[in-house]
């Protein structure tokens, strides 16, 4: 397992694509032979994926295909049962220090926002920088305000999450993740819980983030976003990666029957 990776002549199609991307070419995230079981159910089977620095990868697939489980394994919200996961050169292990080190470098945005309802918007954003990065309060608050300006809602800093619209809450959640200055951002269906008129404000924020060079893995059903922003699209079904390709390849000319079936159902 260990001497299979790190070689320059990647032979699988999955890896070969990465070199053609906008990304810098150095791997930010590597998944190798990752398996995940829920009881007897195999949620992930032999997942191999390499994401380059500054690359945007969009993961699509039918529900229950393991998309969320895969990205939740990357920051250890789920524990994988076999294989290797390496984030920015650090391999995920069972050591809590190691897990926290990887979580510090990995931002995550959830479908249901998961803002802390008892804290103000600004406190939501500054809590982790203050307690984990040990920033002084004033520095953390300046950083927090800068993040809120980035997602274009600085005027909401003093409010509580319950007073914001869904779209605003999700933008605060993005700002909260960014305040930790992560190297990777994971998005787990960030627009699925939003009313239709709020989806675009969140997608626009994500587009700007992608344009700024953030490494991103996005699980979504927004095909427009995938087509426009993704460097690569990953199609998953039944816990396995079925096909990986550029958006052009993927939407115009998919090679797998399973992909064609899925696309015919949703487009």
């Amino acid at each position: 397992m260990t001497d299979q990776h790190d070689d320059t002549h990647d032979d699988t199609a999955v890896f070969a694509d990465a070199t053609a991307m906008r990304g810098t070419g150095t791997a930010m995230i590597e998944l190798e032979g990752v398996d995940k079981f829920f009881g007897d159910f195999r949620a992930l089977g032999d997942i191999n994926l390499k994401v380059a620095s500054q690359e945007v990868v969009v993961v699509i697939g039918p529900s229950g295909s393991g998309k969320s489980t895969m990205i939740r394994c990357i920051n250890r919200l789920e524990e994988h049962d076999a294989g290797r996961i390496v984030v920015d050169g650090t391999e995920l292990s069972n050591d809590i220090r190691n897990i926290q080190e990887i979580r510090r470098e990995t931002g995550m945005v959830f479908q249901s926002f998961n803002l802390f309802p008892h804290l103000s918007v600004l406190d939501n954003i500054t809590l982790a920088p203050r307690k984990v990065r040990k920033l002084p309060k004033r520095v953390a608050e300046e950083l927090g305000m800068a993040m809120l300006e980035m997602v274009k809602i600085p005027e909401q800093a003093g409010k509580y999450p319950g007073q914001l619209s869904g779209g605003q809450q999700q933008r605060v959640a993005i700002a909260r993740s960014l305040a930790m200055k992560p190297k990777v951002m994971l998005f787990d269906e960030p627009t699925s819980a939003l009313d239709p008129e709020m989806i675009n404000e969140v997608l626009d924020t994500m587009k700007e983030l992608a344009a700024s060079g953030m490494t991103m893995i996005v699980v979504t059903h927004e095909m427009g976003f995938a087509r426009e922003v993704a460097d690569r699209v990953v199609f998953m079904a039944d816990g396995q990666i079925v096909e990986v390709g550029t958006p052009e390849h993927f939407f115009e000319n998919p090679s797998e029957d399973r992909t064609k079936l899925f696309l015919s159902q949703i487009l």
Partner: peptide, 29 residues
């Protein structure tokens, strides 16, 4: 909700801080 703990984990808080800053204040209230 479990999502609160997941969010606390995802931003890198230690288990003690997840409890002290996120879970316990909401639980007690």
């Amino acid at each position: 909700p479990r999502g609160q703990i997941e969010a606390a984990k995802a931003v890198g808080l230690s288990p003690a801080r997840q409890m002290g800053y996120i879970v316990l204040p909401q639980a007690l209230r």
